[in-house]
Design a protein around this nucleic acid. Structure first.
Lengths: 147, 147
DNA sequence: CGACTAATGAGAATGATTCTAAATAGATAG
DNA sequence: CTATCTATTTAGAATCATTCTCATTAGTCG
């Protein structure tokens, strides 16, 4: 999916829930979609503040999107920022313990398995956040590595 | 496994890595093991400060244990504290989106599946942190609920 | 147009965690 | 046993992401 498509989807979701599509929100959605990876609020603010958008607005918009379930918060052990994932379908976020690269891995039956585990505990399944730590392809064998 | 057994295991791991088994560290390990659930650093500090143990020591000890891989950090979307899990084997931490109860769910082939996904991405598997959000048994149907 | 509500943003406040620096305890060499 | 050296502890300050306040602005609807 292309960035502008993703941005439109975020904005559409906001409108659909009664939030006005202000220029600021557009910019935040656009920045989220552009980022490609797993942005932090600070990164979004950085890429958007040159348009005179305040940090409160960035945090508000992101929080709203999260509450609507269109983006998902995740915090990694490798840094102290909350990161956001535009992909809310159950998947594995692989994090390299050496270079901190994050790789999204979709696996066939992961969602089923997780839903089943919830069901067996008598619970319902709403969302999942799976993080796997290890050495990525590029950091095998090396002790220190590039980002 | 009983609490004192768990506490001894933590302490043993520290000693094994050259850390002195000081009374403060003993107390922290003991408090971690006693807690039973998924303690925060603040909770441990709370239950240990009456012995005159400083908060820096609590944070230091917990961070050390985490680095040794005997406990695992996890942050949930339901509060802003880092929680610690004494169970470092791959399992699902089910979190009720209503009452925030945390339930550990062990599933037969979860570890294999996660390791496989890492392998398929050309990566090694070191640790996993799986969080599933949903409504727990007690919160089905209700909108507001007890803790 | 005029009033009411949603949205924004500068800056202050919060609060978990980390850092600093000075004191203490334990171990080891002589 | 004492001197020395290092590990450990800790009170309090500092950090820094995030949240809050509240005055201002923009949109909407009668």
């Amino acid at each position: 999916m292309k960035a502008d498509e993703r941005a439109r989807r975020l904005l559409r979701e906001l409108e659909h829930h009664g939030y006005r599509p202000t220029p600021q929100r557009e910019a935040v959605c656009w920045a989220l979609a552009q980022h490609g990876g797993h942005p932090t609020a600070a990164e979004i603010f950085e890429s958007v503040k040159r348009h005179g958008i305040g940090q409160a607005t960035v945090y508000n918009t992101i929080t709203t999107l999260e509450k609507l379930g269109v983006i998902q918060a995740m915090s990694l052990n490798t840094d102290e920022h909350t990161r956001y994932d535009l992909d809310t379908t159950p998947h594995v976020n692989f994090v390299c313990s050496q270079c901190s690269r994050i790789i999204d891995c979709h696996a066939p039956h992961l969602d089923l398995m997780l839903a089943q585990i919830a069901t067996q505990a008598g619970a319902t399944f709403e969302a999942a956040n799976v993080v796997v730590y290890g050495r990525c392809e590029h950091c095998q064998g090396s002790t220190v590595s590039a980002a």
